[in-house]
């Protein structure tokens, strides 16, 4: 796949939909495209985070270590972004991400990510939207869990 195709691909991701083509090209050129075999690990819970990943093809599991062993809490699909929390607030990785199928990702380094966020407020808004969405999901789950525990 060439640079131009990658740019087209990025454009289909909501996060980058409103960014001008030349910036997407820079993003594609400076980001490493990585292919993972099934069960390969993108990063481990507790690692220091230095980059975020955009899923271009395939699926990935988010796995959290619990006292009862590893637990798959979500599955990511094409066009989703993962790993941005650790680089946004400098905390260790909060979960392990593992390839569920053959997986292709675009790896965006911390510096590039911040560059984009600062330069393009649209991206910041998209990320806020995504984070709020996830928070909402988490809260729902928590509420259910609490209700279950009480009953």
């Amino acid at each position: 796949m060439g640079l131009q195709e990658e740019v087209e691909l990025l454009r289909n991701i909501p996060l980058f939909a409103k960014i001008e083509a030349s910036k997407l090209k820079l993003l594609a050129f400076t980001s490493e495209r990585l292919t993972y075999a099934e069960q390969d690990v993108l990063f481990e819970q507790g690692d220091v985070g230095d980059s975020a990943y955009i899923i271009i093809g395939g699926e990935a599991d988010i796995v959290v270590n619990t006292p009862g062993g590893p637990l798959v809490v979500a599955t990511l699909k094409q066009n989703e972004i993962v790993g941005e929390i650790a680089i946004l607030c400098d905390v260790p990785r909060t979960a392990t991400v593992r390839a569920k199928t053959q997986l292709t990702t675009l790896r965006i380094t911390k510096d590039l990510f911040f560059n984009l966020v600062i330069e393009f407020p649209q991206i910041a808004v998209e990320i806020m939207r995504e984070l709020a969405h996830r928070l909402e999901q988490t809260t729902t789950k928590l509420r259910e869990a609490v209700a279950e525990a009480q009953s």
């Binding site: 030349s22 090209k25 820079l26 050129f29 400076t30 510096d111 590039l112």
Partner: peptide, 17 residues
Amino acid sequence: LELFADLPPGHEFFEQF
């Protein structure tokens, strides 16, 4: 030129990419 012209001089991307 298209990719890097807007970046400030000395940006690490120059060296890397």
